[in-house]
């Protein structure tokens, strides 16, 4: 059972780093007290792909996400993004490299408007530096204008334009998911880590979200997606990594992962 021929053995699967890899993590470990949440996990995401990360509840997927973008510091292991190690960078620097994330439970800035949520996300704005408010007021105004246009365009593309001036906190659960993704796109990311984009969302909206992801992917954004909805994972992802008890179980194309007995056992228990 273990030696399915088409599935590459995990320990050798992520080295060396190829030019086609955008994100490579090797040997990531994280313990909380006596619990090893992530135990020598590896992952590789090819440029321009939509890659899936699945596993039963408590497998350590979200912890792995946090390790990838340094919201948590790994005990061991390293992360290489676009050929350069990023494990030593603080989280906001990781984001500025173009590696963005969303949260499992969507986090919107409630008392800011939807539009302000979007404007905030643009990186390295002139007006974010305190002294520039006095030194370069004209440039700031011009930048704001451009950002506004781009924010409107993105909001329109995800169908939130009508809500632009509402408080973000007044949005429904599904709209918050959309806003969170739209907000990340405002940053012009190279890669996005999506934590359960379809969780708690009605089927129609799931389809819309999938369409948006495919569209953004065609525009050049690489995705790594945690998702429990297998239909979504199987239809979107070109490659899937399976995590169980903090370790890599298998990885491969959806068709193979789906039928892999180990995966079934991890999910169903035996």
């Amino acid at each position: 059972m273990v030696d399915e021929p088409s599935l590459v053995s995990v320990s050798s699967s992520v080295s060396p780093v190829l030019p086609s890899d955008l994100l490579v993590a090797t040997g990531l470990c994280k313990s909380f007290g006596g619990i090893r949440a992530v135990d020598h996990a590896d992952i590789r995401v090819v440029r321009g792909s939509i890659t899936g990360l699945i596993g039963p509840n408590g497998a350590g997927k979200t912890t792995l996400f946090n390790l990838l973008c340094n919201f948590l510091t790994p005990d061991q292991g390293r992360v290489i993004f676009d050929g350069a190690p990023i494990s030593h960078l603080p989280p906001h620097q990781v984001a500025l490299q173009g590696l963005l994330r969303t949260f499992q439970v969507p986090r919107v800035l409630s008392r800011l408007s939807v539009l302000e949520n979007m404007l905030l996300a643009a990186p390295l704005q002139t007006g974010e530096k305190l002294w520039n408010i006095w030194l370069q007021p004209l440039r700031i105004r011009q930048e704001e204008q451009e950002l506004r246009q781009r924010a409107w365009a993105i909001l329109e593309s995800v169908g939130l334009a009508a809500k632009a001036n509402d408080y973000a906190g007044a949005l429904s659960g599904g709209q918050r998911k959309l806003l969170e993704m739209a907000r990340v796109m405002m940053h012009r990311p190279r890669m996005v880590l999506l934590d359960e984009p379809a969780a708690g969302v009605n089927p129609t909206l799931i389809n819309q979200i999938c369409e948006h992801i495919v569209r953004w992917n065609q525009e050049g954004v690489t995705f790594l997606i945690i998702e429990h909805n297998m239909d979504v994972v199987m239809s979107l992802c070109q490659h899937i990594w399976v995590l169980a008890e903090g370790r890599n179980l298998v990885d491969g194309p959806p068709s193979e992962v789906q039928t892999n007995p180990e995966v079934l056992r991890a999910y169903l228990g035996q």
């Binding site: 984001a95 963005l100 986090r107 990186p123």
Partner: peptide
């Protein structure tokens, strides 16, 4: 705007590169 974002949820501000 960044200050207000930090007031609302600093993890989000961090995740967006602030």
């Amino acid at each position: 705007r960044v200050l207000k974002a930090i007031r609302e949820d600093e993890e989000v501000a961090k995740a967006l590169g602030k």
